[in-house]
């Protein structure tokens, strides 16, 4: 068996990303959707760090971008959860199927 290479990490990342996509499409609950999005963020981060390790190991720019992704994900989670709380206060529920009051 050959050693673990870039493709292994990228495949893992792809699997996690697709699980995230599935969760985002099927979860009814807004916090669940957010969790799936966090999974997708992490999948992308694995890709970035794997590229930093195997393609440009001398200049680890991939890791820098991963740090930015983590920061942006944290910001996203903060604001999104605040919005979820607000929706809950208004509608006593955070079922994403029913959050359609801004359509009309």
């Amino acid at each position: 068996m050959e050693g673990i290479g870039l493709t292994h990490y990228l495949t893992l990342s792809a699997v996690v990303f697709c699980i995230g996509v599935f969760g985002m499409l099927t979860r009814r609950n807004a916090v669940g959707v957010l969790m799936s999005i966090e999974l997708m963020f992490n999948a992308v981060n694995i890709t970035l760090v794997a590229f930093a390790r195997y393609v440009t190991p001398a200049t680890i720019t991939g890791q820098v971008v991963a740090i930015f992704t983590i920061a942006v994900a944290a910001a996203e989670a903060t604001v999104a959860l605040a919005i979820v709380l607000l929706i809950y206060q208004h509608h006593r529920g955070i079922d994403v199927d029913r959050i359609n009051f801004m359509k009309w």
Partner: peptide, 24 residues
């Protein structure tokens, strides 16, 4: 981030009910 999630879950307590359908 996870801590925030757990707090959001607690503050929107009703969604922790297992009786509610969790997928669409």
């Amino acid at each position: 981030v996870s801590m925030l999630m757990i707090f959001a879950i607690m503050l929107t307590a009703r969604i922790a009910d297992q009786t509610i359908r969790h997928t669409n």
